[in-house]
Amino acid sequence: MKTNPTKQIVKLGIILSIYCIVAALALSVTYSVTLPKIQEQQRLSTERSMKSVYPNASSFSVVTNENNDELFCSIEVESGVLIDSLYMANDSNSSLIGFVVKASSQGYGGLIMFVYGINPDKTIEAVSIIEQTETPGLGANVYKSSFLDQFSKKNVTDSFIVKQDVTPITASTITSKALTNGIKKSVDFLLEHHQEMTDEK
């Protein structure tokens, strides 16, 4: 028994399309159900990283200009150092505690993403690593408090030079330099370009 080949192809095409449509429908339903939850998770993870810098702050808001456009969104300060965004941290009386900078720097094994706080008295509040792909056991120790704590209360006018005023992670000079340099360069850039920040200090 022979069937018309064109008819056959059309028939197969219709069958495959039905499968695809059913699949796409199922996916869009799942997507719309899970979407609020996914967005919630993303918001939570950003907030968690900012809370790690200013645990007492009650709200964080993106720093904007007069037109409500975000300032400092994905600005490359120098090759490898990127300011992702700048937030203001306010306490429950909505008075300013400090600024949170989300930035990244090119490390040994890829980008190191981190946040840190700048206090109004021009000192670093705390540094926290969001994401990194450094060598396990070496550069990956960048998240440890033994390394990060030395930035706390450091004045932004300090020199930030590894092996001088910053003790590197054991045998991971490149990673240590990447983070130190990332903080220093982004802070310098912000102080130079952000009027509001310098005014208040």
């Binding site: 199922a26 996916l27 799942t30 997507y31 899970t34 939850k37 996914i38 998770q41």
Partner: peptide, 10 residues
Amino acid sequence: TILQFLLQAY
């Protein structure tokens, strides 16, 4: 893809 949604959400 459904798995990806679920993982991202939960």
